[in-house]
Write a protein that binds this DNA or RNA. Structure first.
Lengths: 212, 212
DNA sequence: CGTAAGGTCAAGCGAACGTTTGATTTAACG
DNA sequence: CGTTAAATCAAACGTTCGCTTGACCTTACG
C-alpha cells in the first residue's frame, strides 16, 4: 500500500510538472502568440527545469501544440454546449447570446479561462500546422449556428449566413485580444451581454434596408 | 551642377536603402507582428547590410516604430477621408461602406496596401509603447463615425454607439488578419462590399427587438 | 592631392534561444 | 543491498539574435 502510494506520489509529481508547463505555455500563448513563447520563461513560470519540456513533451513546439489543442477543445466544447440549447424558435438575440457566452464568461472569469479564450483567438489569426484535426468541431459550431439562423431568417442566402457567423466569431476573438477586452473584463457577464449581444445579433441580421 | 547632382544621387541611394528597410519592416510586421520581426530577415529582404538599420534608424525597434507610424497615418488618413464625405443624411449602409472601404480596398489591392492594413490591425492587438501620439487621429475617426451614426439613430445612447464603432473596427481588423481575409482578397471591392457592408451596418444598428 | 562626410560592408561582440547530455535523487522490486 | 525506472537538475551544446566596430568606397571641397 505505502509503496504504491509513494510511487504514485512520484508519478503525480511528474504529472504536476507537466500540467504546470501546460499552464505556463497557455499563458504565454495567450499573451505573446505562437512566436512569442520562450522555453526559459515557461520553465521559470512553472518552476521547472528547462529539460522538463523535452522530457515531458519532446520539444517546445510539441508543448505548444498540446496546449493549443486543449484550449481549442475546451472553448469549442463550451460553445457547442451553448448552441445545443437553442432550437428553431430561438430569437436572434438568444442565438447571439449563446454564441457569445463562452467568450463573455471567459472575459469575466479571467485567469486560465481568459488565457484559453485568447489562445483560441490567436490561433484564429495564425493557425499552427496540423490544426485541421480540430476543424470538425469548428464546422460543427458553425453548422449549428447557421441552422438556427436559417430558421429565423428564411430569406437570406446560406453562404451569407456562414459569412456573418464567421464575422461574429472574429468579432468576439478581436474583443478578447484587443485592449478593449481588458476594459470589458472589469464588467460582469450581464453588463457585457447588454452591450455585446445587440451588436452580434445585428451582425447576424444584417442591414439591407433601402432607406435610412 | 554636376557635383550637386552626383551628391544627390549618393544621398538618394541612402534614401532608397531607408525606404527599402521601411518597406521590408512593414511586410514583416504585417506577417509576424511586433515580436516576429528579425533584423537579418529585414535587411536580406531589403538587400541591405545589417548595419544599415542602426545607421538609418538607430535600432530595430526604432525602425519598427517608424514603419508602424507610417502605416497608422496612411490608414487613418484614408478612413478620415472616407468618413468626411458623409453627412447627417447618409444612410446606415453608406456609413458602414465608408467605414469599411479603406480595409476593403487594401484587401483587394494586396501588396504594400494590405501590409499597411494588417500592420494597423496588429497594432490594435499589441499597442507598442508610445503609440498614444496617434491616438488623436483614432479619436477623430471614431468621433466622425459616432456623430453621423447619432444623427441616423437618435434613440441610442452615445456610449453604445462608441462601443459599436469599436466593434466594427475590430471586426474589420480581424477580417484583415485572419485567413478569411486571404479568401476575401481574391474578390473585387464590389463583391467584398456586398457581403461585408450589411454586416457592419447591422452591427452599427444593433438588434434590440423583442420577438423574432 | 589631401581632407571630410555620407553611406556601405564583412566581421565579430555578448546575450538569449531550443536542445542535449550525464549525473543525481527518489521509490519500488528482488 | 543492488538494480531498475521515473523524474529532475546543472551545465553545456551550437545557433541565431540585435548591435557595434573599423575599414572601405564615393563624392565634394580646399
Amino acid at each position: 500500500m505505502t509503496r504504491v502510494d509513494k510511487r504514485d506520489l512520484r508519478r503525480e509529481a511528474g504529472r504536476r510538472t507537466r500540467d504546470g508547463l501546460l499552464s505556463a505555455a497557455l499563458e504565454m500563448l495567450a499573451r505573446h502568440g505562437t512566436e512569442g513563447v520562450t522555453l526559459r520563461e515557461i520553465t521559470e513560470r512553472a518552476g521547472a527545469n528547462v529539460a522538463a519540456v523535452s522530457y515531458h513533451f519532446g520539444s517546445l513546439k510539441a508543448l505548444c501544440d498540446v496546449a493549443i489543442e486543449h484550449a481549442l477543445e475546451q472553448y469549442l466544447d463550451a460553445q457547442i454546449l451553448e448552441l445545443d440549447s437553442l432550437d428553431t424558435t430561438s430569437t436572434l438575440q438568444e442565438v447571439a447570446a449563446a454564441f457569445a457566452r463562452p467568450m463573455m464568461r471567459a472575459l469575466a472569469a479571467g485567469g486560465q479561462d481568459l488565457a484559453v479564450m485568447r489562445t483560441v483567438a490567436r490561433v484564429g489569426i495564425e493557425p499552427p500546422a496540423g490544426w485541421e484535426r480540430l476543424a470538425g468541431k469548428f464546422d460543427h459550431c458553425r453548422r449549428i449556428a447557421v441552422r438556427v439562423l436559417t430558421a429565423g431568417m428564411p430569406g437570406v442566402d446560406e453562404q451569407e449566413l456562414i459569412f456573418r457567423t464567421r464575422c461574429a466569431a472574429g468579432l468576439l476573438n478581436w474583443l478578447a485580444l484587443a485592449p478593449i477586452g481588458t476594459e470589458l473584463a472589469a464588467l460582469s457577464v450581464e453588463q457585457i451581454e447588454r452591450q455585446l449581444v445587440p451588436v452580434v445579433a445585428g451582425a447576424f441580421r444584417g442591414d439591407t434596408s433601402a432607406g435610412r
